[in-house]
Write a protein that binds this DNA or RNA. Structure first.
Lengths: 355, 355
DNA sequence: TTGTATGCGTTATCAT
DNA sequence: ATGATAACGCATACAA
């Protein structure tokens, strides 16, 4: 009724209730027993003064904790959240963090150095770096200097930092071998982006030199372990439309057409299948297709794709758990996950040529 | 090399550099001119001591600003980010907020009241409430008492709060009228969720009493303006699979089958179309379908659906702009957006019966 | 169970 | 251009 100029503070409340500030403070934190009578008196005074509880900013300073965990995503948010794998990870992350954090701070991946990158000035207690590429290096450096716990999900962990990883290479090799076992020799691959520019097109050796996205490179390496010389096309992202475009390119010429395609994500695989259907190819009779992720694509049966299932939600959860550990003073531990092969109905032996 | 116990503070740096703390502070904030020589001395001392800049928590307290804007999304994150409209809004929002905020704090929509809801204790400067339903009321109340600027996107704004809205009812009526003009009389609708429980099924009058989601109700009202008695099925969310399920229900019985369906979102419309295709109905010859949103669905031509286009990105941007205004001390202004009709190829006059 | 005293690390104001 | 000083609002160790 009267606080037009200054918001009430806890000491105002204490004064009005006739107790000390520490008592009032304790009423709100609930960390110490308080006589019911005083408790009520304080609460009454608080509501009288329109006091809504301790100022989080002041509490942060005093406690040395803000309750906020930052998340740095590669690329624009739009892109990040279009990917079901990322979404699932975020879910696991928020789940695991629910007890130690009031929320997730989405940090933009520092556009082009506006002096102080958000990661350097956000009031957070810890940070999760997801699928970052280039800039991860400096981000990690900043975070480390700030003495902040950090976890990297599928980054390139040369360092001794806590990391959540996946057996991308082995998994990809497994998928490639599956095709090899079926007898495929003319095989191609559709890859995720190689770098932040997200260039589309055939991957040449020199393009690999500039490549920075570890996930793409690892999956590519696994593929090349089995098919060293097969053509690979990079895309601008894990999208059905991107797979469609790449598929059209690869399947366009009947002369050079592969009998099987290894897509680096399920969404890309779906796109490739659409491209095949467009030109009348049957899957798997005329073309075998494998994916990666094992996600549930909305609007797809999703039961049929031959792929590997990665524990996306668990990855996020593991990251959250490690953050929680580190926040509790224990050392973080890297966690490595493995995928599981899920046979579907999109692969078969190649059709006999000339028949 | 020696800070094993206590992190260096700005006054340590100042001492080491032989200047006052205020001078050191100013070097980092850059708000006042400092002689180049001292500047360098301070920076040198800082890097010597491993000082990485002002502690954000302390700065927040002193400034009264944390640089953080909270976003409250209805339901689980997983769900929220599956929706292209939400994603687009988030994009616009982060865009508009880039200058006044270091990041977006994703607040979980307080599951079941663990004493202190995150919205009450997060150190943020302002809050955006998106598509919230029930709980928005209390959220708004808390936020208001905290004296925090708040913007509601498509909530129900009985109050005098700043709100970003859309002409849901008019737009829906427009779509319905489009079908009416084509001659359709047997029409049904597939609706978004009515409440947080997300129950599926035919909407009956009593179910409407418990309904809390304004968007759903508004679009439904617009539809009912034209077709007061038409059957409406609610879904669990804006998903292709949900539209598919609802479509199967509505189209299952040839006797009662409608000649046109109004879906409350494009994703639902896509699902309905799939359901129609499943049972051999042609769109639009046998069934007309309209959507809502005008989004680009990955993996869909997306050129053909008859729908209304809503300015999702602009909605987010407007919210961000209002937050920025309010943070600058100006009053917030509600903004109302209108959709645009986009004719596609999924509507046509109904087929003549008995022929 | 309650009160006292301190300092968390900054930044803004005002002098100099 | 630089410095002294006073908050910012709270939570905790400790004493009573």
């Amino acid at each position: 009724m009267s606080n037009r100029e200054r918001r009430a503070t806890i000491s105002d409340v204490a004064k009005a209730a006739g107790v000390s500030t520490s008592t009032a403070s304790v009423v709100f934190s609930g960390k110490v027993n308080v006589a019911e009578a005083t408790r009520e008196r304080v609460l009454a005074a608080a509501s009288e003064l329109g006091y809504t509880g301790p100022d989080p900013r002041a509490a942060s300073l005093r406690r040395g904790r803000s309750g906020i965990v930052g998340v740095v995503l590669a690329g624009h948010l739009r892109h990040a959240f279009l990917d079901p794998v990322t979404t699932a990870m975020m879910d696991g992350l928020t789940d695991a963090l629910a007890d130690v954090s009031t929320g997730i701070l989405l940090l933009r991946d520092d556009p082009f150095g506006g002096e102080a990158p958000p990661i350097a000035e956000a009031p957070m207690d810890a940070v999760v770096l997801i699928g970052c590429s280039d800039r991860i290096r400096e981000a990690v450096e900043i975070v480390r200097r700030r003495g902040m716990p950090a976890v990297v999900i599928e980054g390139d962990g040369d360092d001794d930092l806590t990391e959540i990883s996946l057996d991308n290479r082995e998994a990809s090799a497994m998928l490639a071998r599956h095709l090899a076992d079926l007898g495929h020799t003319r095989v191609a691959s559709v890859a995720l982006p190689l770098g932040p520019q997200r260039l589309r097109g055939l991957i040449t050796p020199d393009r690999l030199d500039d490549a920075t996205v570890g996930v793409t490179l690892d999956r590519l390496a696994g593929f090349r372990d089995v098919y060293p010389d097969a053509p690979v096309i990079s895309t601008a992202g894990s999208l059905i439309d991107e797979g469609l475009a790449a598929g059209r390119t690869l399947l366009g010429d009947p002369e050079t057409r592969p009998t099987a395609i290894v897509a680096q994500s399920d969404l890309l695989a779906v796109g490739v299948i659409r491209a095949a259907e467009e030109i009348g190819l049957r899957v798997p009779e005329d073309l075998s297709v494998v994916g990666f992720d094992g996600i549930a694509v909305d609007g797809l049966g999703s039961h049929e794709l031959t792929t590997v299932v990665q524990p996306a939600l668990e990855k996020g959860r593991a990251a959250g758990e490690q953050i929680a550990r580190m926040l509790a003073g224990e050392p973080g531990e890297s966690v490595h996950f493995t995928v599981q092969f899920r046979p579907g109905e999109t692969t078969a032996p190649p059709a006999r040529p000339f028949r």
